[in-house]
Amino acid sequence: MTIMHWLSRSLAAVLLVFFGGWLAAAQAASPDLPRDKGLPVVIKAGVAFVELFGFDENAGTFRATVDVRLSWFDGRLAKSGPILGIPPDTYRDAAAETRMKEIWVPPVVLSNQQGEAAFSSYGLRVYPDGNVELLHRVTADFAVDVDVARFPFDRQQLFTDVAIRGVPIGLVTLQFDQSDIDFSRPSVGAGLPGWSIGLVDLRSSPISSWYNSSEARVTASLTVARQPGLVVASIFIPLLASLLIPLLAIWLNRMEEGVFQVDAFELVNIIIGGLFAVIALNFTVYSSYVVLADGDNTVNRLFALNYLALATALFVNIFFGRFNVLARVFGPYVQEQAYLVIMWAVPVLVAITAAAFMLTAAV
């Protein structure tokens, strides 16, 4: 028991030393933190979407130009004496980057950015009262999560994560106020073919870090709604039309005095042709919209309904038309009445199910 107690105390001491060293290193990495208002240093963040170049939902990325605005207070930069009416010191591009090396700047990254930025530019304002405003314009690809459960009536969130990396939230934190919310919006000229542009939402979503600590993050999400017209015409009309193939294989036959007038072989050929048509449509759709292949969505449901309807039509034609099972067991009259029920029950069930799938996605 003594040895176990000694080991546990030793382990706790090692962890304490390691964590203390990590925290000290984090503080040493930011020796110039402005501590005029205490810790944590509050950074206000806002993101404006200037231009949208494309959204690849299969890859889960979009390309955009965004303006990231950060503002904080650093009393060391305040001017002495009367400051009323004194304009801020303004720096652009190379001058801004040079000035940023001379003052403390929060270690902010766009954590969902993919690869190098295609364009990056800075603007810096240092106000005489010590307030600092940094504007970073960047064009890059950003990774997003795509949810197509309500396809083609879905809405997607094109977001940019503004995060503080390497500094605990107890030292530097990200927040936003009404001015940042007003700043965070899509520009008038921002557009995305096939999508309607909505509003930008800001939310705080800290990142879990080492030893139960957190790092600050603000997520700016631009809502875009899919315009379903073209998708409905190119995908859903063929999907719904293909449901008619198994129904025709049932409707085309008729009975006279309990005897089918159309050979089951001909109707089975129609069903097999419908099967190949659905497989071809399946391949075409999933080649264009790879993201639809996984998960539960309206397209997958309608494909499943197509296969089920084809299997039902095949069973009905073989069970009734080829082997006359009911006629042999219960007589021709029972088979004729059962077939009449199936002729109307199957189309009604298929229509109701397909309508329910579409309404579930639309509402």
Rank of each mutant, 00 (worst) to 15 (best):
R92S: 11
S184R: 01
N297H: 07
W251S: 11
A96V: 10
E256Q: 08
G20P: 01
V262W: 03
Q113M: 14
Q175S: 11
N131H: 08
F330C: 08
T360V: 07
L239Y: 01
D161P: 00
V363Q: 10
A356K: 14
T2C: 07
A48I: 00
R322K: 10
V126D: 04
T219M: 10
W6M: 06
A140N: 05
Y91L: 08
A59P: 05
G273P: 02
R63D: 07
T353R: 13
F236M: 04
L174N: 02
L84M: 06
V14I: 15
S213H: 14
L171I: 05
Q261F: 03
P34R: 05
E133R: 10
T219R: 10
G54C: 00
G331R: 07
P87R: 04
F159C: 06
L359Y: 06
V47C: 10
G60T: 13
A338T: 15
R328E: 14
V200N: 02
V285E: 04
T90S: 12
I86Y: 03
D263G: 09
N269I: 14
A117K: 02
T353G: 11
I235K: 00
F183N: 00
F176A: 02
T160D: 06
D56Y: 06
I181A: 15
F18I: 12
A149W: 09
S214G: 01
N282G: 10
E133L: 10
R137M: 09
P168D: 09
A190D: 03
A143Y: 02
A277Y: 11
V231M: 02
L222Q: 02
P206Q: 01
D201E: 13
V42Y: 06
D141C: 04
P152Q: 04
I342R: 03
V341L: 14
F303G: 05
F73Q: 02
V334L: 12
F55I: 08
S187L: 11
F260K: 04
L292Q: 05
V268R: 13
I181Q: 12
T61V: 15
Y289Q: 12
V200P: 01
A345C: 13
D36C: 13
V291W: 07
K79I: 08
V200I: 06
S111H: 03
D294G: 06
A327R: 00
F62D: 03
